[in-house]
Design a protein around this nucleic acid. Sequence first.
DNA 1: TTGGGTTCTCAAAGCGCTTTGAATGAGTTC
DNA 2: GAACTCATTCAAAGCGCTTTGAGAACCCAA
Lengths: 342, 342
Amino acid sequence: MNLKELADHLNLSQTTVSRALNGYPEVSEATRTRVVQMAKRLNYSPNAGAKGLATGRSMAIGHVIPVANEHEMVNPVFGDFIAGAGETYADAGYDMVLSLVPEQNESDTYRKIKARGNLDGLIVHGPKTDDSRIALLRSLNLPFVVHGRASNVHLHYSWLDIDNYTAFRRASDFLLDLGHKKIALINGLESMDFAFQRRKGYTDALAARDVTPDPSYMYASEMTEGYGYETATALLTGHKPPTAFLVSSAIIALGVRRAIENLGLTMGRDVSVITHDDDLSYLKNTSTAPVFTATRSSVREAGRRVAKMLLQLIEDPAQPPLTKLMETDLIIGGSTGPCQDP
Amino acid sequence: MNLKELADHLNLSQTTVSRALNGYPEVSEATRTRVVQMAKRLNYSPNAGAKGLATGRSMAIGHVIPVANEHEMVNPVFGDFIAGAGETYADAGYDMVLSLVPEQNESDTYRKIKARGNLDGLIVHGPKTDDSRIALLRSLNLPFVVHGRASNVHLHYSWLDIDNYTAFRRASDFLLDLGHKKIALINGLESMDFAFQRRKGYTDALAARDVTPDPSYMYASEMTEGYGYETATALLTGHKPPTAFLVSSAIIALGVRRAIENLGLTMGRDVSVITHDDDLSYLKNTSTAPVFTATRSSVREAGRRVAKMLLQLIEDPAQPPLTKLMETDLIIGGSTGPCQDP
DNA sequence: TTGGGTTCTCAAAGCGCTTTGAATGAGTTC
DNA sequence: GAACTCATTCAAAGCGCTTTGAGAACCCAA
């Protein structure tokens, strides 16, 4: 069923049918309802490609996910983010397309995306502190919003980020207030901007209390459960075990807890743990008595908001960049307690 | 830069340029390389919509994810699956588009997808035992592959599934061999086919050994860490604590382990646990001494394969449905041991 | 009756590509 | 040198939609 057939069924021209369906004022209400009903009855939906050709809008948003190598891990946070963004798109009638972009030929890939013209805008995932994609995308003249930021890129662009620096600074202060001085940081890859910011918050907090940040307490890697377990085990069985851990993801935290309990220690008494918590749907930390003390921010909500920002930008591409910094909540749970160390 | 401009630059017709770029034999090699080089130099990529209009192929695959309500959890397995499928699509030049489809008006949504003509095929996620989408999609004449199966739908259609029945039957046998009789099942939602099959494997295994499946040992819900923790805690502190758990996801298993250790028990000695393990990238159970005894199957590999099947189907829509049942591995880890119960 | 405004509808062009059917020119054959 | 290939190239139609610029049809005032 295409427009021509529908028009024939109605004894109207394609023009009139098109206008009726798209809400133009030049068509009488009687005609409009007649058209709409017939369209529904015959299951008519306009062909996306043709519509895109004619309007220059594809009604699709791309999510570009950098992939360093074929077997890299997938960010466990991604599912929730997508779910949030997907809600927004569905309401606005946009499709969501996922592009796994190899880091080798980024420039080519983004140029191709622009040239193919099948995306009205992009969400950029996983920004590094010094991310070359931002300059590239700006020059391509394609609306985009970064989920996160690139601290070393001093250009105007749209982003939504959580305040990673403040989150980890507050969390560190919280531990310091409890008397902890030997605080280990188990971070994500510090080429990633969020991890970079978190370390800065951590080191600044320590330095402000005259605690010299100790490199042997600072780790950075991909955020898996195993990484948390192994790192915490190594540290706790080493010659100067930390009394507290500050970790960058709930998944890492599970590994850290396993390490602690595996050594016969009790989390929250013998060893304190604060984690960042993305409020993932399958990993809730939200009972009446949360297990983990955590800096919390819903990544699903972030998805919703980033998507809305991008749609605004598409609506009016001339407007200045939109930015939004979301503060995190500090949730007090059972994983922290006063330092027992003499 | 469009085809016409490119052709003008080359002093050739659009026809010749198009044929050169698409590998048709009627154009001389000299011309072809000249065209290809110029195209690269000018960053030409054909407009996706126009190409789709002309060829009838959109070079895009849809992933349709049923959503019962706005705040439903996102399957944590999804990220890895997508990563696998994405690899396959990238190689073949397809885009991947995600559709979150509300369960209310499924029929309308799928019809619209077909009518809009912007997807060459679909991957269907989260099949229920009695999934109405399969009949619908068959009638729409749009290639599709189901990730999983719908046991109560007796139609021919393409699917790829793991052998959930056998996996849980073997796992149950393994526990029975160790002397366990009080085995609790912590399953996913049993309207989902995978969970239905797993329960069947479990109950059949018990029945074959003259152990009557006890409904008070059988739980089904969304597979979160909290669900595992709460269910295991309730059972272990109840009046007839099980000696073993059979659980449907690695995330649940983390909760179960937490419950066990929280009660001062040791997993693998006091209580045995077998989990299904999707081999998620951020939750590896693959060290030299795996933590969990598990039925394992890589969901990322499943993603790769499902995508390949769909591409085959698109290649030749006339062929009969493709099906593939993947067996799972039984990994022996440290979470199981002989039953201590008198 | 005529002229001038509304209101509604339409034919046709154009978006950027592929593909059909035809034309051109060079090379072969007799 | 005419007749015939074969290899290249091209003009134009068509995919399904939106949108421009224009034409009917109607009503009211003069």
